[in-house]
Simulated assay, not measured.
Amino acid sequence: MTALITGVAGFVGHSLAAALLARGERVIGIDAITDYYDPRMKRENLRSLTSSPDFEFHEISLAQAPLDELLKGVTTVFHQAGQPGVRKSWGRDFATYSVNNVEATQILLEAAMRADGVEKVVYASSSSIYGDAEKYPTSESTIPSPRSPYGVTKLAAEHLCSLYAANFGLPTVSLRYFTVYGPGQRPDMAFTRFLTAAHLGSEITVLGDGEQRRDFTYVADVVRANIAASEASSQPGAVYNVAGGSNVSVNEVLATIATLSDKKLNIVYKKSVAGDVRRTGGDTTAIRRDLGWTPSVSLNQGLEQQFVWAKATVESGILRTETIS
């Protein structure tokens, strides 16, 4: 396999690149290194990849990238790039989400159509497209109803993937990630904030009452889902949930973190964010049947691994605590 990974310096992107390089695959990475969060974390992610002679990196946006040239010889495209976050997707910042999540995806799909030899385009979608679903666990047949502009743009890009599959036969697969966590998670995401604060003994901010429930998915399981989607035969335009199978509240997660850290947590509850959903939970029947994928890492195991990473990253100075909010 020769893979092109967009967003290769990000959380899932660099984890996927590392796994493919470990298998002896060739990886071409693209990342604009935006400042949505501390670029030093992204640079550190890249540092762990650049020692491999099979890794080639291009610091550029998809809109500016010479995609026709970069896609020569590429068999699989993993489209992990995008503007993340529910909170900032409201207001004036929406234009950034529209460009980075929708327009960039259309540009990439057009380039993949022109390329010879692209056997699969795997798109990183999100459970945010469901909003507050009518049924749990939620299957792929559920009508999407996003509650945030971020979710709207992820759904729009997913529809583009399905349209290019239906109209031109482009072999796309969209994976709807359910709350990915683990080592390397972004500093603005809840688990990194919680674990870092627990380690330092500082205040933990919870948006809402903490009773919102989530289906958390460990990053290594998400990586395996991407690889399975790239290798298995599936209908062009297929969509699959990638969910860890947990059904726990934020408060239950905090109780686990308190046990891991062996400290009393200083928790402050604040108003919930517009667009945040009360519950998520993915039905993984389809991905188990079609791709042979099942989650393998429990929430407790994953939290232990992320806590080790968070402590080491803070102590090394790579993760600056003043940037975590």
Rank of each mutant, 00 (worst) to 15 (best):
D276L: 04
A165N: 10
Q301M: 10
G91S: 14
D93N: 15
Q106H: 12
A104S: 13
E211M: 13
T280W: 06
E158S: 13
D290Q: 12
S61E: 09
D276E: 07
G182D: 01
M113V: 14
E211Y: 04
Y36E: 07
A228P: 07
V99I: 15
S272F: 01
G73Q: 13
L4H: 07
L195K: 03
R147V: 15
C161H: 07
T323N: 14
T179V: 02
V268D: 06
Q64R: 15
T50M: 11
E252M: 03
F194V: 02
S162V: 09
A225F: 01
G244F: 01
L21R: 04
Y97G: 03
T217E: 05
V206Y: 03
P137L: 10
S296M: 04
C161S: 08
Y123W: 14
K72D: 13
W309I: 03
E56H: 13
T217P: 00
T6V: 01
A232F: 10
V206H: 02
A310Q: 09
I204W: 09
V173G: 07
A81C: 11
D31G: 03
D93Y: 06
V122H: 02
I60V: 14
R40T: 05
G182C: 00
V242D: 01
E231M: 06
T196K: 05
V118W: 02
N167G: 05
K263Q: 14
G91M: 15
A65R: 13
E140N: 15
A312Y: 12
F178I: 00
G10A: 06
S145W: 12
L71E: 13
F78L: 08
